[in-house]
Design a binder for these strands. Structure first.
Lengths: 168, 168
DNA sequence: CAAAACTGCTTGCATAATACAAGCAGTGTT
DNA sequence: AACACTGCTTGTATTATGCAAGCAGTTTTG
């Protein structure tokens, strides 16, 4: 809980929270993969985060206010992690980073299809997605449109397409 | 020059390049502060980067293609660092991160005025700014509008305002 | 009803990144 | 001739990360 910031610049303050190799990966998986439990985050991500790092990041993100932690009623040892409003507002940041990555880095089709939809959809889509995240994570009423389902469907279609083409 | 990526996800690949505490600070200073020399970057930033870290980051960013390094004709020991197209395209990322930081973190007015203008200006302003960066860093013809000057003027006005209010 | 699997983590240890202070060889200015 | 400036490097201390193993309790399974 150190209150000594390097500067009051918004970019710097953002980096003091998100400027490492894992924080945004964890948030990405919570947001786009709907991973809500420790083990899900630990085992279901492509990148393979270590358990001690994951534990540390979850603690820090709760501490900084980007996510919250609650007990899972269905299992006495389970914890549910949820995005807060602060975390949900990272949608435009992910959209911008995704576009940049897609433009300049060797992304795979499967894993960049969501970024493409997010880029094409623009702020209107981001808003719809954020509304849905408020429903999924904060108990807000569900909007009609499910951007999450659209992203997921596009991803799974891409996976399938890829499998077909490989299984000549 | 390791080619082993954790995954082909655009967010992940972006983090593999920019996911640390200093890379984006260096790029921010080059972009918004027009710092082009090593000592400028070393001494004129609020955050106080260490010289070995700065040297390492400049090397890495050149290596990854976000900036370039040239000899300064005016001084045999001087090097000029310039943004590449890849670096210039980070403008929307900075805009998104700046907006998020401004919304949720304890920013100071002086240091967030540029983020505010960038947010209010939207994609049209970002485009104009990127055109100007191409002129400043890549030798492209100068556009009429100088977003850089606008940002700088707003910043200096904010500094002045702040000094006035403190010197009761 | 015992074995197996699953829960959110912790611990120990090796390696890598960061921070801080000092310094260096060459260049340009006074 | 003295001094300040140039882009760095070097050395050392601390912190972050990566990897493998394990743990106490809970739930599912044969």
């Amino acid at each position: 809980m150190k209150d000594t910031h390097r500067s009051g610049c918004p970019i710097n303050l953002t980096l003091e929270i998100l400027g490492d190799r894992w924080s945004l990966i964890v948030l990405r998986d919570m947001m786009f993969g709907n991973r809500r439990h420790f083990r899900e985050l630990l085992t279901k991500s492509e990148e393979g985060i270590a358990s001690n790092i994951l534990a540390d990041r979850l603690r820090r993100l709760v501490d900084k206010g980007l996510i919250s932690r609650q007990d899972d009623p269905s299992h006495k040892q389970k914890a549910i992690y949820s995005l807060t409003e602060m975390g949900i507002w990272l949608v435009p940041v992910f959209a911008a980073m995704g576009s940049w990555g897609r433009k300049f880095l060797p992304v795979t089709e499967e894993l960049s299809i969501r970024a493409e939809l997010l880029e094409d959809g623009g702020p209107a889509l981001w808003d719809a997605f954020m509304s849905e995240l408020r429903a999924l994570h904060l108990g807000a009423p569900s909007p009609e449109r499910s951007v999450f389902a659209e992203l997921q469907a596009a991803y799974e279609a891409a996976v399938l397409r890829n499998r077909m083409s490989k299984a000549v």
